[in-house]
Amino acid sequence: MRSIKNILFLILLIQVFSCNQKQTTVADYFAHKDSGVQVAGIKMVPIQTPVGTFKVWTKTIGNNPRIKVLLLHGGPAMTHEYMEAFESFFPKEGFEMIEYDQLGSYYSDQPTDSSLWTTERFVEEVEQVRVALGLNKDNFYILGNSWGGILGMEYALKYQQHLKGLIICNMMASIPDYEKYNAVLRSQMRASLVDSLQAYEAKGQFKDPTYQSLVFQEYYTQHLCRLPELPDPVARAFKHVNESIYVMMQGPSEFKVGGRLLTWDRKADLPKITVPTLTVGARYDTMDPAHMEWMSKQVKNGKYLYCPNGSHLAMWDDQKVFMEGVIKFIKETDAGE
């Protein structure tokens, strides 16, 4: 008799709990957050820096008190545009998503003081965006691609008490290791091409049209985005890149590493990241997928997603595998799994 009562009590508890979990409706999801003139979720967020106050561009799509995903684009100084792929997937899952142009990028203010372009200052910028948009440890996910993955790791190492989950897409935990893997990819190219590229590089002719054409046709189409034609959002992001910041921090191209990030390495600090973390690697990526898998085992609560047909922009060229895996991770983290 006691066991029957216990079962009935358990059923009652489940029913009460279920009733208290309000399901997000379409009307709830698309409800206006602000009064007055509606601006498609766009908000210019003031950012305090050591050299003054500037504004960065953000766009919030949807409302979800439990799942808010901030997208960190690559570059540095690319734009949110190439991450618009998520608009076809996150809203239908009910995820709130925030597109964001980091300071110096096309839709945000573009100051010219070179002291602003450091990883540490970008981390503080992300924290200010978090506060301005009301994101917290119960709902705040970061999804960073490439340089955005570096920024996500750095943010977690300083502010993970505010994070619910971290997704590191197509970014290794060490630029020196990335450079070594780049040499591996070079070794797989035809010898005459490598000789030609090295001849231009030896003279510092990174902006030479022939050199840039070779890099794009022989490297980017194989390892950056393998689709036969660049999707419009990706093409727009390339068009809008702030080249001066990109070169200052990353180097001349994805093919030739340099700049302020040249010695960046956080491999030894990965065990300090304790929030649920997904690392995403791809077979044809500019980043070593084996390193990405290794990273998932170094963080305290990691998972790995492999995209067998993807490159550096696996969100585009291995879209089904990428999106399904990322969505699954977010749902599992939300459920506490």
Rank of each mutant, 00 (worst) to 15 (best):
V51F: 04
W264H: 15
S146G: 02
L278D: 04
G251C: 14
L193T: 14
G41I: 02
Y181P: 06
E99L: 15
T24S: 07
D138K: 10
M153W: 01
L193A: 07
W147S: 02
S105Y: 05
V39H: 05
K320T: 15
N6P: 00
Q250A: 15
G36A: 11
G104Y: 05
P65Y: 07
R236Q: 09
F90M: 11
E87L: 15
G144Y: 05
N301W: 12
T79E: 08
E293N: 12
F255A: 13
C307V: 12
E218N: 09
F54E: 02
L166Y: 07
L157C: 08
F140G: 01
V126N: 07
K22I: 11
Y306N: 09
E87G: 13
Q298V: 05
P308N: 09
E337D: 13
P228V: 02
Q102H: 11
T49E: 01
P289W: 10
S146Y: 00
N6K: 11
R266K: 15
A314G: 13
T333W: 06
L116E: 06
E243V: 14
C169D: 13
I330A: 02
A282E: 01
Q222N: 12
L70D: 01
E84L: 11
W117E: 05
K92H: 09
F54Y: 15
I330D: 02
G104L: 06
S244T: 14
A199I: 07
P276A: 09
I61L: 08
I330L: 13
D109K: 04
D34G: 04
W264I: 13
P91E: 11
V26K: 12
T119A: 05
W117T: 08
S108W: 08
D288K: 10
L70H: 02
S244W: 08
L135N: 02
T24V: 13
S105N: 09
M78R: 09
R130G: 06
A183C: 08
L305N: 08
I330E: 02
M172I: 13
R66I: 05
K92I: 14
I98G: 01
N6L: 12
P231K: 00
F54W: 10
K180S: 10
Q110G: 05
D109A: 07
E120Q: 14
E96L: 02
K256Q: 14
Y82Q: 08
Q222L: 12
N309W: 04
Y306M: 11
Y306E: 04
I168L: 14
G134V: 08
A183R: 13
N6C: 03
I11C: 13
Q160N: 07
V123M: 06
P65C: 06
K59H: 06
V234F: 06
D28M: 01
D318T: 10
G36V: 11
